[in-house]
């Protein structure tokens, strides 16, 4: 049976929808459609787009490689101080990204606590390179993988692992055939959330990796730079980002918007 929704709720909901959709609509209206070709090349869209895709995918992979084992430890180990550890790990979600970038600079910059040593012994420099952009992006993306994976792991009845063991499966076989398949939706959700976050990353990247076209200037950075000199190009770049985000939402519509 459907209950009737009161009118005031309808009104507020309509304002909410307008609030979210109006900027999108405005961008579409203001886009200089007649100068499409020149605006595109002028803003260096192709380069920034390529870089954004490479950086965001690399950051997603790195987030998964590090984040999934981390989630496993948080969900399954009984060591003391887990809640403190979890708080530290998910801090980048609530922390201003620019602060994260500063922290990365202090740690991994050429003169940083670890970065100096990296540079002197191995000749590795992260700042102002694509690697720096990947590191900064992973910093903000990985916590999303950790959260999604950990909650997925917690929702799996641990007796399944006991059952697998009793049936003769060693821990690795049980993880591969039983736990990971059950964890699939959570892993997918974590990966997509991390990728979407990576695609929009701005603050940590520009602070830590800089804003060098072709090396660290991803789409959001390109939008930021173009917004004064070439507003039309900035709008086009923004629309590209929006299109990609919508693509993510459509691909994941059921899993993210309805849970799993």
């Amino acid at each position: 049976m459907r209950s009737r929704t009161p009118l005031p709720l309808w009104i507020l909901a309509a304002i909410g929808v307008a609030f979210v959709s109006l900027p999108l609509l405005a961008l579409l209206i203001r886009a200089p459609w007649s100068d499409l070709g020149t605006a595109f090349t002028g803003a260096g869209a192709g380069t920034a787009l390529r870089l954004s895709i490479v950086v965001s995918l690399a950051a997603t992979v790195l987030s998964m490689v590090l984040g999934v084992p981390l989630a496993w430890v948080l969900a399954r180990s009984t060591m003391p101080g887990r809640s403190v550890l979890r708080a530290i790990v998910v801090l980048p979600i609530v922390m201003p990204p620019v602060v994260g970038g500063l922290g990365l600079l202090a740690a991994l910059g050429r003169g940083g606590v670890v970065g100096r040593w990296l540079h002197e012994t191995a000749g590795i420099q992260l700042t102002f390179t694509i690697w720096g952009a990947i590191v900064a992006t992973t910093f903000v993306s990985m916590p999303l993988v950790v959260l999604a994976t950990e909650s997925g792991l917690r929702s799996i009845d641990r007796r399944y692992e006991g059952a697998a063991a009793a049936l003769g499966a060693g821990p690795r076989y049980a993880i591969r055939r039983v736990v990971l398949p059950m964890l699939g939706p959570s892993l997918a959700a974590g990966a997509v959330l991390a990728w979407a976050r990576a695609l929009g990353e701005f603050g940590a990247t520009i602070t830590f990796a800089g804003n060098l076209a072709g090396r660290t200037q991803t789409l959001p950075l390109a939008v930021y730079e173009a917004r004064l000199t070439d507003p039309g190009g900035a709008i086009f770049l923004s629309l590209i980002l929006i299109a990609m985000s919508i693509g993510v939402l459509v691909a994941m519509r059921d899993r993210i918007t309805q849970g799993h």
Partner: peptide, 21 residues
């Protein structure tokens, strides 16, 4: 022995069939 080496055939309460297999 660890569980996987005990050679016990278990039929679990709530069956515990692996849902993805």
């Amino acid at each position: 022995l660890s569980p996987e080496r005990r050679a016990i055939g278990v039929c679990f309460q709530d069956d515990l069939l692996f849902p993805r297999l």
